[in-house]
Structures are given as structure tokens and as C-alpha cells.
Design a protein around this nucleic acid. Structure first.
Lengths: 341, 341
DNA sequence: CTGAAAGCGCTAACAT
DNA sequence: ATGTTAGCGCTTTCAG
């Protein structure tokens, strides 16, 4: 006769009861062995594990989560997968969660707040132990449901603003200002700015605004700006740089929203005999690893991307005891002085 | 009085019962509205949705999954997040699943079969609708549990072998052979090979073996091989190329395990006045977008990374009706003839 | 079109 | 160190 108790034709997967029957113990004992909870004698544990292996039992956490409320899932939202920056953050998140026995469930918002909203509801339906969201800007609906459900949220990448509960990132305002200061000190007076993502990257915007205001305060001028609607890439940077330099009124220096764009700019200059930094200086943002393989070291701001992922994931992993106190974890950036400025 | 029924202090989240009470309908009706199942009158649907919004109810899919056996999660395993190739595949997977209302839960195996095994068990504990695994090589334990649970598995990247149920990818054997043929036709006779990941990238190994055997068959020679244990990167490629070219017996051409390494090699040559392809030819693999921003077009094999993700995810999304028939979906590669060969 | 009853597979809480 | 009992929040099934 069949040993299955499942009335539905649907599935025929073994349950803890089946394991218990084979191992000759109670179902509760199987549960304890599976979770590594409570004290179980060596012999029983082995019987149970063998029985489980034999019949191909896999722990069912859906059922577990529903009764325990302690669910090892973490919802992760990223703005894009097209940019190394976020996959490095994801890498930090994933490794840290993995170590803590937690698992990421994730979605990509494509820099859209309404897509983010949908994602947040969807992720919340898995009753995650926490949520990791990009940036500090979210729509009202997201704020409301976060408040109502009381889910722990780590807002990452940015610390220039008020987090819902905790933020982990860098100050883009300071980074933009510092780069402006550096370029001004070097004697550059007229500037270009090249960005991508059609302005949806709010952190790039923060950097740029701080950069621009610092430039103006020092009597410098912003004389060229180009923005692509595409995701950032070397190809886009190369194209936009060509456009900026084609103009009769060339800037002394170009600030790029990130390293990919800056590297593309450098490639344009190298291919067209434009002297860097003699005719035009180049500055990027992030300090991506591939820069050090380029023919010239690009000046950029080093950001701790992996570490941002790690610190956010660690906070989510921590057994919550701290009350509602807000946490702002600011990680530091640093200008890498290259040969392009 | 409190409207909560939850005896545990644990959580105090509203349930369908709470929504039902507020909306003045039965809990079952709420369930139908949430899932968009069955026929619900317009009025009732709106009442329910309003009530849900008002009290901040979020659908609980853990509870749903346990009774319905139809779970919108898909387990995804990637070998690494350090390589654009896989984040592009992930991008295709994610977008496709998203469209189908499915959600990825994922883990990274770091090219280790035992890490993969752990991951597979962990992912299976969420009773996913399917699994996406890299490559065709898996350990016995993975094969057993896949068979026992009957979970749908899409093996991606590679079609040179027998899948458990379905594979989506390219032929690395053919790709390696084709590149060898191309280089031989160009007149190159002595070859170098540069790789990374310490040989754990089994697909790179398949390419290389096909490449090497083709070279030997044509009377060519493989005179230099370097392999880094690091993840692949331009920096590693630059370094290894320097090492290969420092040797008195220089190869006519270097085949790289991928474009990052090849681009690093090109950068070395450009920076050191090594004539490409006059002194040494360069060939990569993948056709990553950034190649077109480099000063010289590198010859490479174009691979459909995003599409591999899409086709695997589509197969997982499809309501299963097809029997146990094996599926091998071979996507095509194509040599991009550049200026470096 | 809507509702009531009966579980889904597991864990918490309380025995023993 | 192990077992019993009573749900967790939802969906299935069967009524109406």
C-alpha cells in the first residue's frame, strides 16, 4: 500500500510524519532534528537523518515559517543589475546573509519608485525578517506599509537624509563637494558633467548638485552637461564625451557620474589624441577595480560597495533587541588621485 | 478591545480574517480577491481592497504555499556574482520571472559542487516551482534529491552533455573549436592560453580542450598557459599577459578564457608598445558590451547571456504539461571578428 | 458569486 | 531527551 497521506494528487512529497514513521520516532522529534533545536540523542539524530535521506525528505520552511514567525528570508531590492556597483553590493549582502543562514529573495526596481512599491508588497508577502532597499527616497505607500508591518528596513547606498529605521552608505553630498574642491585646487575652472540613467539615479544627482554648488561658490563655471537615458556604460561615456568635446567651448575638466562613463571618456581621448589632463581632466566615481587595468589611472572617489552590503546584511541578521532607535551608518569615501586630473 | 487573535506576542500582523471583518465579508472572499481567483463582484472586491489597505494587510504566501502547493518561488544558483556574464544571465532570469509573477530566491556556489549541494537543499526547502542551476556537472546528492523531489531543473550555460531535465546554453566545445579554426586560418601557429578561477570554471575548460585539440590536429602548438586562482578581471588578464610575453618563446596568439582577461591583455600590450596583432594576437570570449569602448576591437565569441536567462526562466514559468521529455535548448554563438587577430 | 468546514506541514508550549 | 496537543494563516473542496 501507499505510504502517502496526501489527499491531493498535487504533490507526493514526504513529510516529517513519513520520516518519523521510518525512523520510529515522533514527528516532533524529526522537527527538532531538522532545526537542530533542543537536545536529541546521537542515535536518534542519526536514525532521523538517515530516514530523511532515504526517503528524500526536504525540510519545508513554508510550513515552518507560518507557525514560527521566524523566517530566514530577507527581501532585497536593487535599482539595477546592469551596474557593477550593485552586483558588488549584492555580493556583500549575499555572503553575509549566507553566513547567518539567511536567504535573499530579490527584485529589481529599475530606478522606479512605483516598481519598488510593487516589489516591496510582493517581498513582504514572504514575511521576510527584513528588507534592504536602495536609497532613502521611497513613495508614501512604501513608507506606510513599512510602518504598519513594522518590518526592519535597511536603506543602503546613501546617508544624506533621514532613514525609516537604518541607513548604510556614503555621503554623496560630501563626495561631490570633495571632488569639486580637488579639481578647483588643481586649477580647473570650467567644468562638464556627464551622467546616465536619465537622472533617475538620485544619488548621482546629489553628488552633482553638491559638486556644482561648490564650483559656483569658488567662481568656477559649469559649461557643459550631457545625460544619457541608457544605463551607464563605457560606450555611453565615450559617446557623450565626444559630444562634449566637439563643442567649441571645451571644459577644463569633466566630472562623470561614475567610473564606467569616465573610462569611456578616457578611451575617447586616447583614441583621438586628446591630451589628458592637459586638454581635459577626467574624474569618475566609485573606484571600480577595472580602472587599474586602464592605460591611465583615472581620478575617482573610492566607495565601499561590498562593505555597504555587508553592514546592511549584518544589521538585518542581528537578533533584534535594539528598540526603535534610528541608525545611520556612514561609511567613508576617499578620493583616489590618478593621472587624469 | 484588541482585534487581534494572535496568542503569540510574536507578531501582530493582520490576517485575512481581520480584513474580512472590516470589509464585512467572509475570509474566503478575501482570499479570492487577494489571489484574483474566481468571480468576485466589483463592489466586494473594492471593499476588500480598501479594507486591506486601511489595516495594512499584506498577503501571506507562506500560508498560501503550504496549502496550495503552487508556489511562485524559483531557486536560482549562480557560480559567482563577480562576473558580468552571470549578472547578465540573472538579469534575464529576473525580468522573465517578474513578468510571470514569479520571484527568484538565490544563492552563489562560488564554483563549488558541495556549496551547490547545500544551496540546493536550502532552496528546495522553500518548495520552489523550479530550480535554475549553472552547468551540467552536479554531485550525486544533488542528482538524487532532484530526482526524488521531482522538481523542475533548468541547467544553464552549457549544452555539451546530458541535462537532468532541460538545459539552456551554448556549446563551449564548438566555440573553442571555432576560435581555434579562425586563428589557424589567420596563420597563427603557436598559442598561449590564459584563464582564471583556478580551473573551476568547467565551461572554460571545455572550450580550452576543444581549442587545444583543434590546434594540435592542425599542427599548431600550445606553448604557454597561465591560470590565475582569482576571479577573472582585466587586472588579472593584464598581469598574466605580461608574464606570458616576458617569456623568450612568445606565442603568436593568446586565447583568453573571457573578455575581461583579454581586455586586460590588450591594455598591457597598448601600454608596453606590443603590436597587436603583429606581435601577438588576442581572442576573448563572451562579447561583453564594454569591448566596443576599447581602443581596439577584440576578436571574441558572442554569447547570448541575457537570452539564456530568459529562456530558462520561461521554461520554468510555463505551466508544466510536457511529460518527462528531456529538452536541450542550444543558443547560438558567433565569432565577432575584431582587429586583434 | 459567496460561505463553511477541513486540512496543508510544521512549530510553540506544555507535558513527561 | 522525547511526545502530545493546539494552532499558524491560508487554500481546497463542497455547498448554496
Amino acid at each position: 500500500m501507499s505510504t502517502r497521506r496526501n489527499s491531493k494528487a498535487n504533490k507526493n512529497q514526504p513529510t516529517m510524519h513519513d520520516v518519523a514513521r521510518v525512523a520510529g520516532v515522533s514527528q516532533m522529534t524529526v522537527s527538532r532534528v531538522m532545526r537542530g533545536a533542543g537536545y536529541i540523542s546521537r542515535t536518534v539524530r542519526e536514525q532521523v537523518n538517515n530516514a530523511a535521506r532515504e526517503i528524500g525528505y526536504v525540510h519545508n520552511r513554508l510550513a515552518g515559517g507560518i507557525s514560527s514567525y521566524d523566517n530566514p528570508l530577507v527581501g532585497v531590492v536593487l535599482p539595477t543589475l546592469q551596474n557593477r556597483v550593485f552586483t558588488e553590493v549584492l555580493s556583500g549582502i549575499n555572503e553575509t546573509l549566507n553566513t547567518a543562514g539567511l536567504r535573499p529573495v530579490f527584485g529589481v526596481s529599475e530606478y522606479s519608485q512605483s516598481a519598488e512599491e510593487e516589489l516591496v508588497f510582493d517581498l513582504l508577502s514572504w514575511r521576510p525578517r527584513g528588507l534592504i532597499l536602495p536609497g532613502l527616497e521611497h513613495n508614501e505607500s512604501v513608507r506606510r506599509i513599512v510602518e504598519q508591518t513594522g518590518v526592519r528596513v535597511a536603506e543602503i547606498m546613501d546617508v544624506d537624509g533621514e532613514p525609516m529605521t537604518a541607513s548604510f552608505g556614503v555621503s554623496h553630498v560630501d563626495a561631490g563637494r570633495e571632488m569639486a574642491t580637488h579639481l578647483l585646487e588643481r586649477g580647473y575652472r570650467t567644468f562638464g558633467y556627464i551622467a546616465s540613467q536619465g537622472g533617475h539615479d538620485l544619488r548621482a544627482t546629489k553628488r552633482f548638485e553638491a559638486f556644482a554648488s561648490q564650483v559656483r561658490d569658488a567662481g568656477g563655471q559649469l559649461i557643459a552637461q550631457r545625460m544619457s537615458n541608457e544605463p551607464s556604460s563605457m560606450v555611453a561615456g565615450r559617446q557623450l564625451t565626444m559630444e562634449v568635446l566637439a563643442h567649441p567651448d571645451r571644459p577644463d575638466a569633466i566630472y562623470y557620474a561614475n567610473d564606467d562613463l569616465a573610462a569611456g571618456g578616457l578611451m575617447h581621448c586616447l583614441s583621438h589624441g586628446v591630451d589628458v589632463p592637459g586638454q581635459v581632466a577626467i574624474a569618475g566615481f566609485n573606484g571600480l577595480g577595472f580602472l587599474s587595468a586602464l592605460p591611465m589611472k583615472i581620478t575617482t572617489t573610492q566607495t565601499p560597495r561590498y562593505e555597504i552590503g555587508v553592514s546592511a546584511a549584518e544589521w538585518i541578521s542581528t537578533p533584534l533587541d535594539s528598540p526603535a532607535e534610528k541608525l545611520i551608518e556612514r561609511l567613508e569615501t576617499e578620493i583616489l588621485f590618478g593621472e587624469t586630473t
